[in-house]
Computed example of a mutant assay.
Amino acid sequence: MKSSMTISMTHSGSKKRTYPILKFYQSLLAEFKKQQTGYSTIAIIGQSCLGSVAVMLLLMRGVDQVINLFILFLVTLLCMAFNGAVLAQLKTKTTFNLLILSIVFSCSVIVANLI
């Protein structure tokens, strides 16, 4: 087989697999970067209200268990982390990731308390 004339195959033409959720995240991040000041202002109001609803539902159930106090602490911490990131003018990606984390956690607490 030494004398066979085969063409070596390269992987330069291979396409990378793109995940739809990653494309959606990248498009939201690009939009957030373009108008960071306006979106941050709106996001502070929205996620603070969402966090307040999550805390209210936790307090309505009672905080007699340690786990409820810990969840209350986490909701407050994540909301304040995003607000602090906006005020400190951290990198756009860090601020955006904190916003998503805060919203997802607050929504999961709300859903868990309503069920």
Results as ranks from 00 to 15, higher is better:
98 L>P: 01
11 H>L: 14
54 A>K: 00
35 Q>P: 00
28 L>C: 07
108 S>R: 00
67 I>V: 15
80 M>I: 13
35 Q>K: 05
70 F>D: 14
56 M>R: 10
48 S>I: 03
72 L>N: 05
89 Q>P: 03
67 I>S: 14
37 T>E: 09
19 Y>F: 08
57 L>W: 02
15 K>S: 13
70 F>V: 12
89 Q>W: 05
57 L>C: 03
9 M>S: 15
106 S>M: 00
56 M>F: 12
70 F>A: 14
14 S>G: 09
36 Q>Y: 06
113 N>L: 05
105 F>S: 00
65 Q>G: 08
81 A>R: 09
6 T>Q: 14
107 C>Y: 00
40 S>Q: 06
33 K>I: 02
9 M>W: 12
115 I>Q: 06
18 T>R: 14
13 G>M: 06
74 L>T: 08
101 L>R: 08
78 L>N: 06
3 S>K: 15
78 L>K: 09
77 L>P: 04
54 A>R: 00
9 M>V: 15
77 L>C: 11
80 M>Y: 12
55 V>D: 04
11 H>V: 14
82 F>I: 04
39 Y>E: 04
52 S>F: 13
4 S>W: 13
97 N>H: 07
77 L>Q: 10
88 A>V: 07
6 T>P: 11
25 Y>L: 03
24 F>A: 09
14 S>V: 14
71 I>W: 02
23 K>V: 07
67 I>Q: 13
74 L>K: 11
